[in-house]
Design a binder for these strands. Structure first.
Lengths: 201, 201
DNA sequence: TAAAAAATGACTGACCGTCGGTCAATTAAA
DNA sequence: TTTAATTGACCGACGGTCAGTCATTTTTTA
């Protein structure tokens, strides 16, 4: 035998070492050589651990997502009412803390739209399922607690998609600059409509 | 003087000649040489008319969008009620007729997310403004005709974004396969909530 | 036990084919 | 002849590969 490295750990190390340059320049504007240089390894070594730039992105997203999930979970536990919970959930699209993950998410979505690959789609589906299950639980709890009308169930998917749509618009156009305000207004207005005692804005 | 070519017309011709191959392979998987070959011109000539593949995409989108707008406009004139109008509007994301434009729109959005360029953003903003103004008019008409509560105004942007979000999810994951049904259910449920005589689903 | 030899996985950058983009040469209308 | 239009050979840069090097462990031997 010879030197045995922890491949899993080294993957993580390389990903974290290239984190700054990726977030700064964007994965599509970086060459493999530049990434390898930033990570302090040879170009050949890069290919020992990742088969493409996209795979590096997977690794980075997984690392940052883990931290993000813990943050969200902690905040959700302290939240009382449904609108508040939904806002915590949607925080991802505008708050400072999620900035890095959000930036990666943008690259991710862009790649998926441009060159659909099975692996990419599978990973996105996994992430989607994870967060959607979470979101459904929030809505269900709201209904059970009598905060929301049961009809809300028919809209869960759409509500989940709305913030994403607004985010994409704000990223690809010059409109929708104050995303936080837009989303909060939407949540409040919709929740008022869906509340069991019909208040209105 | 010598040969005088209608530059504008030739741009259109090249765009249309490369239409099939672009829709088939996707712009990111095509080389400039392949595009030029498909359009029956030399590579150098391509650069006489477009400074990049992205510019070719602009041209194609503009051509297809023109036809699409005419189709939508005609259908909107025949529509009576607000939910019906909104569905016609959202048809873009799933109907057969819009398939080619939708495919280009995907590429477009992907490029915007991956390498934000000023020109790209300006063009997307222009398209957004055009359709959003249209959408706002539908909502306003619904309110004026007493079909919708005035509070709908606060949600116009969000409703507009929802179908887009659902579309992105359906394209980047393996979920949300029956987009038409999902969107129709959403529109019907939301419209019922926003109707002045409070029916419910 | 020590130390030399063998074995092997980790690592590397020179190399190869391909692509985007340029430009000097060519064509053909006026 | 002049000039707009066209072209593909050419160039530098990139992604990806692979033969060779290095460092460490294992095995052999004195």
């Amino acid at each position: 035998m010879a030197i045995i490295v922890d491949k899993t750990q080294k993957r993580r190390d390389i990903a974290l070492a290239s984190r700054d340059i990726i977030l700064d320049k964007g994965i599509q504007n970086l060459t493999i050589s530049a990434i390898a240089r930033a990570a302090g390894i040879g170009k050949g070594t890069f290919y020992e651990y990742f088969k493409s730039k996209e795979e590096l992105l997977f690794e980075l997203v997984e690392i940052l997502m883990h931290a993000h999930n813990a943050r969200i979970e902690a905040r959700l536990e302290q939240a009382e009412h449904t609108p508040e919970k939904i806002k915590i959930f949607a925080d991802f699209f505008y708050d400072e803390e999620s900035g890095e993950l959000r930036e990666l998410y943008k690259m991710f979505t862009g790649i998926s739209l441009l060159s659909p690959q099975e692996e990419m789609k599978a990973f996105q589906t996994e992430c989607f399922d994870y967060y959607y299950a979470w979101f459904e639980k929030i809505i269900e709890a709201g209904i059970e607690r009598g905060e929301l009308k049961p009809v809300t169930r028919q809209m869960t998917g759409a509500i989940f998609a709305t913030a994403k749509g607004m985010f994409i618009i704000s990223e690809t156009t010059e409109r929708n600059r104050d995303l936080k305000h837009e989303i909060h207004t939407y949540v409040d207005t919709l929740m008022a409509l869906l509340a069991c005692e019909g208040e209105e804005a």
